[in-house]
Design a protein around this nucleic acid. Structure first.
Lengths: 197, 197
DNA sequence: ATCAAAACGGATGCTGCCTCCGTATGCATC
DNA sequence: GATGCATACGGAGGCAGCATCCGTTTTGAT
């Protein structure tokens, strides 16, 4: 009775219910209208007043972070898949692709993401997820570097930025073909050319 | 009396005056608060009513395009400098840098720029400037390719996107050091390695 | 000086943000 | 079940920005 003792009382049922409804509705609205969607509309469609939304999620970023949390399961699932393959270069490539898709889930998502990655505001709920992703990227980079497949000068943070960029461009509505050209350009930038001389 | 005949009447003095005041104020506000700055505030500080602003510049993009127009002189001046140097690879590099600085003049500028570059909306006043810049980039790319300094697979449009990306990241407030690392990464991506085998 | 066209700008309606505070709800206790 | 109290709810409201309408003023031409 250590953890339960603190609260002392069972949490109310409507809290959980409203939170779930808000998250579900918010995700749909983010998907359809981007991260700038009207929070008032989200609240209304979730069947709660605006104040309830703000009580649960004080800022847009907080709501965004909570929605992303539920979506991140997909990402860790991918990570499991990726770690199956033996080739570290291939693993890095797929990881970058997975991050990019994660970042472009909602149009406009890269902006608050970058803001969180940059600043050392511990109160920004997106900061921690960002730091985790950067670290993870660095792991993949190091593994590929040990195998001599990635330039030594490259860091995980660099490729995090690159993935963010591509996701940003994608979010502006660019076609898939120029996007793929850009991905190729970036890949040429970090790959170690085979020293087969 | 061919061109003057069309208008038939001398343009009013206040029109010119207001337009100039608006452009000047708008540029300052864009510089200080980014492209999302309040147009109402711009109008008020320029000493005109909101309607006058909207009459001169029907949309935010129109105002932005007009302000950029005045700033583009700097860019063409740079172009002249760049064409002095004989090395086409160096020229491309400097041109990309010039574009990037142009794009990061105002925070948030890359977004409307990308929107204009993507869509074939002829009414978007930013479309034409974008197309010009892409073509110019392509020129530099081709020249450098002829000299064997840039991979054959690279196109001007790719590097336009890359420059936009870097400018976007810059606009989110990222430090200069990670930015420079990203630039290096991209440069490694388009440069042709010397085939000195 | 007069006139008509052209431009101006205040007022206005709208949407979205965020907060305050009176009210309702749900859990614990009896 | 009924009661009491903490907790959560939500409508109302203040604020800021956008974009437009329309009565008024300015301006150039005659």
């Amino acid at each position: 009775m250590s953890a339960g003792e603190l609260r002392g009382r069972k949490p109310r049922a409507d809290v959980q219910r409203n939170r779930a409804a808000l998250l579900e509705t918010a995700q749909r609205h983010f998907l359809e209208h981007g991260v700038g969607t009207s929070l008032e509309a989200v609240a209304k469609e979730a069947g709660v007043g605006p104040a309830t939304l703000y009580r649960h999620f004080p800022t847009r970023e907080a709501l965004l972070a909570a929605v992303l949390q539920t979506r991140s399961e997909e990402l860790v699932a991918r990570q499991a898949d990726i770690e199956q393959l033996g080739d570290p270069a291939e693993a890095l490539e797929q990881w970058l692709r997975a991050m990019e898709e994660y970042f472009s889930a909602f149009s406009g998502l890269p902006d608050p993401l970058m803001a969180a990655a940059r600043a050392q505001e511990p109160d920004n709920p997106l900061t921690i997820p960002c730091d985790i992703l950067i670290s993870a990227t660095d792991q993949y980079v190091r593994a590929a570097q040990l195998a001599g497949r990635v330039r030594a000068s490259v860091r995980g943070h660099d490729l995090f930025l690159a993935a963010c960029s591509v996701a940003w461009i994608k979010g502006t509505g660019t076609e898939e073909e120029p996007l793929d050209r850009l991905r190729t350009l970036i890949a040429s930038g970090y790959r170690q050319q085979d020293t087969q001389a």
